[in-house]
Simulated scan of single mutants.
Amino acid sequence: MPPSLRPLLPALLCAGLAHAEPMKLADYLALSGPAPTLTLAYGKAPSQYAELFRPSGPGPFPVAVLVHGGCWTRQYGGIVQLRNLAGALQGHGIAVWNVEYRRVDEAGGGYPGTYQDLNAALDLLGAQATAQQLDLRRMVAIGHSAGGQLVQWLAGRSRIAASSPLFQSAIVPVSQIISLGGLADLRREQALIKSSCERDLVDLTGLPSAQRPDVFADTNAAELIPNGSHTTLITGELDTVSPPRVAHDYAARARAAGDRAEVIILPGASHYDEVAAGSPSFRLILPAILRALALDEADSLPKRNRID
């Protein structure tokens, strides 16, 4: 936990953060939120689109890019559940770009399609920034579970070799990353990903070839550091899909490489509390998002809660 949050912990615990009933998968699947302001396609496939949640009033607005999890498959929900978090952030004056993408069990998903979808979704965000009054200089990418892997990968795209199908010469840079129960280190966490998601890594990395002998070189976020990013890894104390050890291990590796990384453990929380705006865990997650966007907490309060 960063020093700035340590003084808050006793009050948060007394408020019931550690004693709330941890969410289960069924609770997560029941999550929903408001309808987006706008839905825009970045490709022709049904899953190639993003939802914009634009705050009311004039911009420019800071931006949170949301990337859902679900073990990279369609089985465990995704973009609909993250509307819960999107609506909460919209209420705090933050524009949200909620990204859908082709998953490994969809035509064109997996390697390289899933990663190319993230590239295209960020390109579309860049193209819409002026018209939608979005301030991309104040941007954070937030991913949950498998989405944590994808946003951590986004931070390192500039290090991908030109010979890779995932290479782009011009990218929308993302240097502030929040990974919620992320499974980002594909190489070192193969066994965990297999046990948690029943996922063979070949779906995410593709097969080796003479031109690409190391399948982790362009897919594994941990191979693309240092990249100048600041990663906040937030994990529930009771998360069994991506346990706290995973966050600590990745943060240590990132810091050793020269990047900034910190870990926040959510007391009494599961893998699913991490993305629920109604969960007590949100009291620790929201300040981390505001810090990543260089926002003052009082300035980001919904208008109904402000005392001017």
Results as ranks from 00 to 15, higher is better:
residue 133 Q to M: 09
residue 124 L to E: 10
residue 248 H to Y: 10
residue 40 L to C: 10
residue 114 T to N: 03
residue 296 D to H: 09
residue 60 P to M: 02
residue 277 A to C: 09
residue 307 I to W: 14
residue 130 T to M: 07
residue 280 P to Q: 08
residue 160 I to Q: 00
residue 120 A to T: 04
residue 5 L to Q: 14
residue 275 V to S: 13
residue 115 Y to K: 02
residue 37 T to P: 03
residue 207 L to P: 04
residue 278 G to D: 14
residue 185 D to S: 09
residue 85 L to S: 14
residue 39 T to V: 15
residue 27 D to R: 07
residue 293 L to P: 02
residue 156 G to L: 03
residue 269 A to L: 09
residue 21 E to T: 12
residue 129 A to I: 03
residue 185 D to Q: 04
residue 104 V to M: 07
residue 137 R to V: 06
residue 32 S to E: 10
residue 73 T to A: 04
residue 249 D to W: 05
residue 231 T to R: 11
residue 96 V to N: 01
residue 178 I to N: 06
residue 185 D to I: 00
residue 266 L to D: 13
residue 231 T to K: 05
residue 127 A to P: 02
residue 218 D to F: 12
residue 226 P to G: 09
residue 275 V to T: 15
residue 284 L to Q: 15
residue 41 A to P: 13
residue 253 R to C: 02
residue 52 L to W: 02
residue 50 A to M: 10
residue 130 T to E: 15
residue 269 A to T: 10
residue 58 P to A: 15
residue 233 L to P: 06
residue 128 Q to M: 12
residue 302 P to K: 04
residue 40 L to N: 05
residue 88 A to P: 08
residue 236 G to I: 02
residue 46 P to Q: 02
residue 117 D to T: 07
residue 29 L to R: 09
residue 233 L to D: 08
residue 273 D to Q: 06
residue 162 A to H: 11
residue 162 A to P: 04
residue 9 L to D: 05
residue 116 Q to K: 14
residue 120 A to H: 08
residue 133 Q to I: 08
residue 244 P to C: 07
residue 198 E to W: 10
residue 23 M to T: 07
residue 301 L to Y: 06
residue 21 E to M: 05
residue 299 D to N: 09
residue 28 Y to Q: 10
residue 34 P to G: 14
residue 303 K to D: 13
residue 77 G to Y: 05
residue 228 G to A: 10
residue 265 I to C: 05
residue 43 G to A: 12
residue 107 A to N: 01
residue 121 A to S: 13
residue 9 L to F: 07
residue 190 Q to T: 13
residue 153 W to M: 08
residue 43 G to M: 11
residue 9 L to W: 01
residue 101 Y to V: 05
residue 120 A to C: 03
residue 260 R to N: 08
residue 172 V to Q: 15
residue 108 G to R: 00
residue 49 Y to M: 08
residue 215 V to I: 15
residue 107 A to G: 00
residue 182 G to I: 05
residue 46 P to S: 03
residue 232 T to M: 13
residue 194 K to D: 14
residue 131 A to F: 05
residue 101 Y to K: 02
residue 257 A to Y: 04
residue 273 D to H: 08
residue 90 Q to K: 06
residue 50 A to Q: 06
residue 2 P to M: 06
residue 306 R to T: 12
